[in-house]
């Protein structure tokens, strides 16, 4: 199964939840997640099933004006 995380292609063999996938990517809290441009609340990270072709965004705080 192929997905992209923060624009980088990632391939994995077993079905994974969104949470385990971003953890294996190395995501460190605090972060918020979106799949295909839609916000996925934290309460759904462990149960959300990722599909091939999904585009996952892992966002964290940065400086802003």
């Amino acid at each position: 199964m192929k997905v992209t995380i923060n624009g980088k292609p990632v391939e994995f063999t077993q079905a994974q939840s969104l949470l385990s996938l971003v953890e294996s990517f190395g995501a460190q809290p605090p972060y918020a997640l979106a799949v295909n441009g839609q916000f996925i609340p934290k309460s759904q990270h462990a149960s959300y099933a990722v599909n091939t072709g999904d585009s996952i965004d892992v966002l964290s705080p940065v400086q802003g004006g």
């Binding site: 460190q28 892992v58 964290s60 705080p61």
Partner: peptide, 22 residues
């Protein structure tokens, strides 16, 4: 104070240092 969100780079510890400073 205004802040924003951007894609996390695990190599830079996900911006934790900035968030702790704020």
């Amino acid at each position: 104070v205004t802040v924003s969100l951007r894609r996390q780079s695990p190599e830079s510890a996900g911006g934790q240092a900035f968030w702790q400073q704020i």
